[in-house]
């Protein structure tokens, strides 16, 4: 009686397992077919909706990146060959993966470079970009990072935020000072005092 029960359970388990397998196979197939369907449908309808219209292609930028990635690929191939090749008598050492990837990157960059030749002529569309504002913020971020350890968290964060607020939009100094002070002191207090974390404190 007991053995029969176990046999019965076993049988049910096997049937269940097979069902699962079939179910999963069908599911995989369905996903795949569904995906193809999606692809076909969207290719038909996408033009009607016209949201993803604008092609953003910059010939010069793509040329430069193509060359840069080409060089990176070459660099990785050359440098990988210097890695001590063998590991534990296995024929597959630590150098194979980067070499293969380096070759792939070189091939892809060449493909990108040839594609830039086919780009239609760029429209001379002057974008209104504000690099001056960004430049100031980026430089202050670099200074912030560089001075974080010598000057401590609160002081550097305060000044960085103050500069950032005022550069993005000139406004009330008082409000900027209050928000910058509240943020830098608040983060420092919560993190160091309450959560026992460590941040560079104040210069001694």
């Amino acid at each position: 009686m007991f053995i029969q029960l176990i046999k019965g359970i076993f049988l049910i388990k096997i049937i269940f397992f097979m069902k699962n397998m079939i179910f999963i196979k069908v599911m995989f197939l369905n996903f795949f077919l569904f995906h193809l369907l999606v692809r076909l449908l969207e290719s038909v309808y996408i033009k009607g909706l016209g949201i993803f219209g604008g092609e953003k292609m910059s010939k010069t930028f793509d040329r430069y990146t193509g060359i840069v990635f080409l060089l990176i690929g070459v660099f990785f191939i050359v440098e990988s060959r210097k890695i001590a090749a063998s590991a534990y008598g296995s024929s597959v050492g630590p150098d194979i993966f980067p070499i293969v990837l380096g070759i792939l990157l070189v091939l892809l960059s060449i493909k990108l470079l040839t594609e830039t030749l086919k780009y239609r002529r760029e429209k001379a569309e002057k974008e209104k970009v504000d690099y001056k504002q960004f430049g100031i913020i980026f430089v202050s971020a670099v200074l912030y990072v560089a001075l974080l350890e010598p000057l401590g968290y609160v002081i550097t964060t305060f000044f960085f935020l103050l500069v950032g607020f005022q550069v993005i939009e000139k406004g009330s100094w008082l409000k900027s000072v209050i928000i910058a002070a509240a943020f830098s002191a608040g983060v420092y207090f919560i993190f160091v005092q309450l959560l026992q974390g460590s941040l560079p404190g104040f210069p001694i």
Binding site: V145, L148, Y153, L161, G164, F191
Partner: peptide, 28 residues
């Protein structure tokens, strides 16, 4: 206002990375 939001996001990024990594290399 974006004025306050954007610099604070930068500050949070820098704080977050430093709090986990403890070095300037990762900030750079």
């Amino acid at each position: 206002p974006a004025k306050y939001l954007l610099p604070i996001i930068i500050a949070i990024s820098i704080f977050g990375v430093y709090a986990v990594q403890f070095n300037t290399f990762d900030l750079a």
